Amino acid sequence: MPRPRLLPSAIIAMALLFAVKAGGVASALWGPAVVIAPARAADPAPVAPRQVPQPVRAERPPAPPPAAPPTQPVAMVAPDPATQAERALLEQLRARRAEIEAREQAAAAQEVMLQAAERRLARRVEELAALQQRLEGMERARGEREEAGWRGLVRTYEAMRPRDAAAIFNDLEMPVLVEIIDRMGERKAAPVIGAMRPEQARLVTAELARHRARRTAAD
């Protein structure tokens, strides 16, 4: 290989250094030198980079979801006999309670009906008692009126002469004759009966005895 020449290189370097120094002295004496830079040519329009078609990638199918972990089999627990017995007992108690409540409701409804019937019966008894009192009062009034009528007839026949009264009594019906003679005083009735026909006098005497016997038995 050729060995580089050091001397010319050193000379060139010294010349360059001298030129630089000289330029510095000139700048100090005459001012800064105006360096007119050559006009640069207009920058060419930027060239758009070529778009290199990207290779079409095949779409990968979506990954399947992760498999669910296997479920553990549920162990079948045998029912507790004690629990079943308690449930059966509770059901029986509930049914018994419902039956008792239904009976109580029916008894309450029947009691209400009986009370209503008793109130109606009490009102009916009161009405009947009031009606009976009215009837008894009417009966007493009627009896009093009848008694007043009989007493008037008795006074009329007592005021008559015995023979005249006997003539009338011979033709009277037996029930009427008995009622009149029964209300007459003994001293007034004896002369009248003595003046009557013997057969009529005998019949009225027997009927008067039976009438008084029935009245005594009724009292």
Rank of each mutant, 00 (worst) to 15 (best):
Q105R: 12
P69C: 06
A166H: 00
Q200R: 05
I100R: 12
L89F: 05
Q92I: 01
Q72N: 11
L177H: 00
L114N: 10
E173T: 06
T156W: 10
E99L: 12
P69N: 08
L131P: 07
L114W: 05
L203C: 03
P191T: 08
R134S: 15
M138F: 13
E91H: 01
E99N: 10
L90E: 07
Q133S: 14
M196S: 01
P79M: 00
A201Q: 04
A78K: 05
M76A: 08
E118D: 13
M174A: 01
E111H: 03
D171L: 07
V154W: 04
A148I: 10
Q110H: 09
R124V: 15
G152E: 08
R123D: 12
L128S: 11
V125I: 12
R124L: 15
F169D: 00
R183A: 07
M160W: 09
A106C: 07
L114D: 07
P69I: 08
G149Q: 15
P198R: 14
R119E: 15
R202K: 14
V176T: 15
T71I: 14
E146I: 13
G149L: 15
W150H: 11
Q105I: 07
V154S: 04
E91I: 02
Q132G: 12
G185W: 00
W150Q: 06
G137K: 13
A201S: 11
E139G: 15
E186G: 10
R161I: 02
A201E: 02
A108D: 09
A108V: 03
I180D: 00
R120S: 12
E126W: 09
T156D: 14
E104K: 15
E139M: 15
Y157N: 01
T71E: 09
A102N: 03
I181L: 12
R197M: 09
A122R: 13
Q84L: 03
E158G: 02
